[in-house]
Design a protein around this nucleic acid. Structure first.
Lengths: 132, 132
DNA sequence: TTTGACCCTCACATCCGTGTGAAGGTTCGA
DNA sequence: TCGAACCTTCACACGGATGTGAGGGTCAAA
């Protein structure tokens, strides 16, 4: 498919699809007239990339962890070098830390919201009471 | 304490401490000579803010969820308005989504790294074998 | 054949978090 | 008293993700 269709199907923009290509996040073909030609599988891949980007990862990091994420779950044997493994372990561990941090904050917000709703309920009851 | 000390104790820079103040993330006093004066509790608060920033949240969002996060766990009753509650619920839910996404990716990386290490081990054994 | 909707590249613009440095005031110890 | 080490404000710069638009090619339908 062409860039416009992929942009629409992934709720992004042509500009961003070109940017992701330039950053080495997606592989893109060309048709005879020079137009970019996107494989259907890219709909999911781009959605995946957008998720990671929205979660605050940089294109550099996404590029490094991308081989772990492709569906066919095939292992790239050339990746089994000590430094690549160390890099991935670093990303894995930092992700774990980030998840822990976000979880703590999520729980704090949830608890606070719970109290707030109790409080709002109390006020509401008080108002109804005085109105009656 | 003064800005230099807080910067050192939070591994940030004076520049950033002024920026966080400007963004309404921390409350800062002044001493007679015009120097900023930071409460000791800010060491933890700034560390907290840095964590959220590193996790990809914007100062705008951090400012909104900050009341949920302060330790004394006091409820600001004025916050019990429907729109504030709705905002916080939105942040809470988006945080939950983000955590889920990051967890999926973390697990995928962990699995991939596991396979790679198996693979590297195999190669090592093969090399030892052929050398012997 | 022309027109409109695509596509291309390139470049400049924006916002955000952060760095850097200039120009000047305060404080403290030699 | 002077100098070093702080602090102040202000402004410009940068990198990364994204928008916008100019100038020009391609293609299909009217």
């Amino acid at each position: 498919m062409r860039i416009g269709e992929l942009a629409e199907r992934t709720a992004t923009s042509p500009r961003l699809l070109r940017y992701y290509e330039e950053q080495g996040l997606i592989r893109v073909g060309r048709s005879a007239n020079g137009y970019r030609d996107y494989d259907a599988a890219l709909v999911d891949q781009v959605a995946h990339i957008r998720g990671l980007l929205d979660a605050g990862l940089s294109t550099r990091i996404i590029r490094q962890i991308l081989p772990c994420l492709n569906e066919p779950s095939e292992i790239h044997f050339a990746d089994a070098t000590p430094d690549i493994i160390a890099t991935l372990e670093g990303h894995r561990d930092r992700l774990a830390e980030r998840i822990a941090l976000l979880t703590r904050n999520h729980d704090a917000i949830a608890e606070y919201v719970g109290s707030l709703k109790q409080c709002a309920l109390g006020v509401e009851r008080a108002e109804v009471g005085s109105a009656a």
